[in-house]
Design a protein around this nucleic acid. Structure first.
Lengths: 119, 119
DNA sequence: ACATGACATCGAAGTCTGTCAATATAGATG
DNA sequence: CATCTATATTGACAGACTTCGATGTCATGT
């Protein structure tokens, strides 16, 4: 399938980076940004993101992540999928294992968007 | 009621400010932070926050906000309540009108938390 | 006192979300 | 090929979320 019209990950579709507090967000922009924020609006996904980000080598195997939670494996898999689809986690399959690493740019854009430049 | 044990707005309950990407978030911390993120994980609330923040004098009357949306008044009222309860919007009733303004500190803490210091 | 206008609260309908058990897939190994 | 192991997908269910119309509250004006 050569360059088919894949749905962009939300993070790639962001107008990008003028803080939300600078000028009124258009309805369209809000609709594009909200799913990104929603992706991290869950305690499990926050911890997953945090675990992957702070893991040695900047990546973590699903097997490691599963152990960190008291949840069924499909549940973790589901949350990882959401984070991946939002563009916040990159996926890399090596052999039988799957490694996730954070998309630093995406996370930075998100922080900026939320008024980061207030400093 | 003198200093009764009011439930803290989520933003006041944050351990505060070490970026999510620095070290693994504890389950407790994640449970405290997630509701805050959830508060802005909706297109309408994102726009409300943005409208209030970018409004002249840094505050906006509910009457102004209602007009900006194609939604019923109770719906806007509901979203404003959520933002207020999360500690992101301050509420100030003057006469018949109610004015909301952003809690800049809360928003900044949130941005920092999401890895703002990545720069 | 009564009416009006601004905003909040309530209750209900429909949709979305988080979770699990069961099952599928796909690489490694015997 | 058969099997085991790591991860993903499916289907189902309970609870949470968004929205609305109806109603309540409170300050102001007549």
């Amino acid at each position: 399938m050569p360059m088919s019209p894949l749905p962009l990950a939300p993070v790639e579709a962001m107008a990008c980076c003028s803080p939300v507090t600078r000028e009124p967000l258009s309805a369209d922009a809000a609709e594009r940004i909200a799913p990104l924020v929603k992706a991290i609006a869950d305690p499990v996904r926050l911890r997953l993101l945090s675990l992957v980000a702070s893991h040695a080598d900047g990546e973590a195997c699903v097997c490691d992540l599963n152990e960190a939670f008291d949840l069924a494996q499909p549940t973790i898999s589901h949350h990882l999928k959401l984070l991946h689809e939002a563009g916040l986690l990159d996926r890399d399959k090596r052999g039988v294992w799957v490694y996730y690493r954070v998309n630093a740019g995406a996370l930075r854009d998100l922080a900026t968007l939320l008024g980061g430049v207030t400093a």
